[in-house]
Computed example of a mutant assay.
Amino acid sequence: MAKTDKYLNFIEVGNKTKTKIISVQNNSSIELAIIKWNAPWRKYCIFFNSQTIFDSKCLEEITAFLNQINKEHKDGKE
């Protein structure tokens, strides 16, 4: 799975038994965060690298991606 938005790239870098691990990178291929399954919350969550800065546009892209991947997981499309 790879998805490219205006500011961010979402690239699958691994997986566990039933879930994915996704790297969030800027357009220069620098990793800014990881999206992975958070069992206590029972959904995908983002884990930011330290010293990263996001504006509202980037956060909108992240929110849209999280909503999409959580819906796919719930619907069993992973």
Rank of each mutant, 00 (worst) to 15 (best):
G76F: 09
N49L: 09
N26V: 12
F10M: 05
L59N: 02
L59G: 08
A2W: 10
F54G: 05
D5H: 06
I46L: 03
N67H: 09
H73L: 14
R42V: 03
H73E: 09
N49I: 11
K36H: 06
S29I: 06
K43D: 03
I21Q: 09
T4M: 01
D75M: 07
D5G: 07
E78H: 04
N15I: 04
R42L: 14
T4N: 13
E31R: 12
P40I: 13
W41D: 15
T19D: 00
K77F: 14
N9A: 15
E61K: 03
S28A: 15
K18E: 10
I62Y: 05
K20F: 12
W41R: 04
N9T: 10
E31N: 11
E60F: 13
A64V: 09
G76C: 06
E61V: 13
F54Q: 00
H73G: 03
A64D: 08
A33D: 07
N26A: 11
S23Q: 02
K16R: 12
K36M: 00
L66G: 05
I22W: 01
E31Y: 11
S28I: 05
I11T: 11
S29M: 15
E60W: 00
I22E: 02
I46E: 02
A33H: 04
K57I: 05
F47W: 03
E12I: 12
N27Q: 01
S56L: 07
